[in-house]
Design a protein around this nucleic acid. Structure first.
Lengths: 383, 383
DNA sequence: GTGAAAGCGCTAACAG
DNA sequence: CTGTTAGCGCTTTCAC
């Protein structure tokens, strides 16, 4: 079936070794020999068998990336950036879904693709510290997001609590007092949601308000439909109790925010006049919404770049020198102010601004330079 | 470093063969033996080396999926569906970007990942028929979208021309007469854009209108920004010439449509009162837009399912029986009518409807049953 | 039921 | 500079 290097060597009248060298572009070969082998390769339509090469070298050039669901805009954009970066390092990305399920996260982290990929980039949602500690796979792992983990793995995550506080502070600074939170986790097992909720709570407390649980709406999922449903429920609940409706919403991500905005419109509430809305992630969708969405913009491209860089560094560790120490990197985030909080101010109907260039952590000068600096989150208004 | 089956066998005091059998769950083994091996596996923390297994079996269990860019919502949703389906068949998806570039499409189709993946699912944008004919890789290939290709490969694509005509007909039926097209291909090399443009042209001609090139806006990319820019240009051009502004827009995809809507708002034009808008793809984003987007909904989940099914069938072909004939499958599409063409009619502020259940082509009864029926595209209003 | 041996396609030691 | 020889870790004929 497949034509192997042996066939090529035979045809070219050289040894296997020589053919191998030609194919791998080794120098020190008589041009005539090289020529002959190359011709044989062409005539036979030889294609190197990567699997065999990998078995020999112990490396596959593959990286597994595991996210809850690529169909979710944030992860689609993140995965896209990771794929591009990985390609620049000659790596291919194997994309896995965890569905945000604890079991599937555990499976992936314990090497579902054992020996297939050289390393793993994981966006854990529910995985706990002890699960990672008990990890039964030795392939390099880089964690993305999800707050604090005291584990011996590289971990790249913005400061969710601080970011949430920035968002809430922005709303408070606009004079909003009844700031709702959309997208809490039902069972509190969703780490990220929990951190952002904590930020909401802390900032309100700091402002002297008592955070009311009546203003917290939990959701099952993370999609637009979930945001719409949660907001609808929250409004109904408040009204049925004769309580005033919130005058601001901080949503756990952009899609929840957009869904919530849909619900607000259905109830005749205007954004931002009646209710100001802030999202999280700065997905492109929010930038072009009819009322463009104010949001927290994590430095996604830095996250992707750092994830790949760290992983590749670990994969290509020579095994001799002291192993690279696990790092905790906190990329910057930015508050991007758009119409959903300040309306069509100033420039009137200007196109939605692209996100302000997000904070750039000190980047490795070249491929394998480390980036161990811990950067404080930076919040910056963009008007 | 890694612990191999040999180590396990040694530890359990059995032969390699036996250990292999246990690991692969073969029957006919003395329970005691099995027990002993399993214990050794546990104690040593053995993980099978998939690369080696693959080298031996000639199969890797991997499927490459190549799309222009997963960050684009349609491809994110499609890739998500493919990943889920593939997982059900025990396959893993290796995701590649082509960037919609001709060269990269060519590279991928000619087996950039030779022998690494068992098969390829490709969404070609610019690849021509002759490129596919001259394909230098024998791994099974399933094509997705992009109109007609007279090539010996499975090809799953809705009828773009008919779908576009349906969209335009809908606009015409609402009394719109100056129907613009947003998202034409600059160099006509983008097959899909060209087909949809043709549909626009044909339907207008059928309605007795002369399609005016002044109403066609080409774009470089396929994103929201491109739609916004194109629409802005088109409006400026029309106005500068003292020509009336269009009263409807058919965009080549949802993101272009959403960008165009942003531009219309900036020019003080209301949707749908002044300008009705129809998109293409039925990405979730359009369903929750402030003015929800009327669109053409391809049966994405059927496309994903069929793609994986066909590919797996070909991969597991025994080599003996007559090879499965290449099929051309035309999944259904649906016109989903939402607010961007008919406003908040009837139900007032009802939530945007989920897409109507799209037409379902006769599906394989079980995993490997063929689905060779050629289904006519079905357009169905959903009010 | 279990063991020995061959080999998937390739690369890395060694010789020559 | 090139050829010969071992394996990488696994499955799979074959014997026993």
């Amino acid at each position: 079936m497949g034509v192997s290097l042996k066939d090529v060597a035979l045809r070219a009248g050289v040894s296997l070794r020589t053919a191998s060298k030609v194919v791998n572009g080794s120098p020190h070969l008589r041009p005539a020999t090289r020529e002959r082998v190359l011709r044989a390769v062409d005539e036979l339509g030889y294609r190197p068998n990567l699997t065999a090469r990998h078995l020999r070298s112990g490396r596959t050039g593959l990286i597994t990336m595991a996210v809850p669901d690529v169909a979710r805009p944030y992860f689609a954009e993140l995965a896209g950036a990771v794929i591009e970066t990985a390609a620049r390092y000659g790596r291919t990305v194997l994309l896995d879904h965890t569905g945000g399920s604890y079991e599937r996260e555990l499976t992936v982290c314990n090497g579902a693709r054992s020996h297939l990929a050289d390393g793993l980039i994981l966006s854990p949602v529910r995985l706990a510290e002890e699960d990672l500690r008990a990890r039964a796979d030795q392939a390099p792992l880089v964690l993305l997001g999800g707050g604090e983990y005291r584990v011996p793995y590289d971990h790249i995550a913005i400061d969710d609590v601080a970011a949430a506080r920035t968002a809430v502070r922005h709303l408070a600074s606009l004079g909003r007092r009844r700031i709702a939170f959309v997208g809490a986790s039902d069972d509190r097992a969703r780490r990220e949601a929990d951190l952002r909720l904590r930020g909401w709570r802390e900032e309100l407390a700091a402002a002297g308000t008592v955070p009311s649980t009546a203003l917290v709406a939990a959701t099952d999922g993370r999609g637009r439909q979930d945001g719409l449903a949660a907001m609808t429920r929250l409004l109904a609940r408040q009204r049925s109790r004769g309580r005033p409706v919130p005058d601001a919403v901080f949503a756990c991500n952009d899609q929840l925010a957009l869904g919530a905005m849909r619900a607000l419109a259905q109830h005749g509430l205007r954004v931002p006049e009646d209710v100001a809305v802030v999202g999280f992630d700065d997905t492109e969708e929010g930038r072009y919404a009819a009322v463009s969405l104010t949001t927290i913009a994590p430095d996604t491209s830095a996250i992707a770049r750092l994830a790949v860089t760290r992983l590749v560094e670990r994969i290509s560790w020579d095994g001799a020198s002291p192993p690279p120490a696990p790092v905790r990197i906190t990329p910057g985030h930015t508050l991007v102010v758009r119409e959903s909080t300040t309306g069509r101010s100033g420039t009137g109907r200007a196109p939605p601004r692209p996100a302000a260039p997000a904070f750039e952590p000190a980047a490795p000068a070249h491929a394998f330079a480390g980036c161990q600096s811990r950067q404080p989150p930076v919040a910056r208004g963009t008007v």
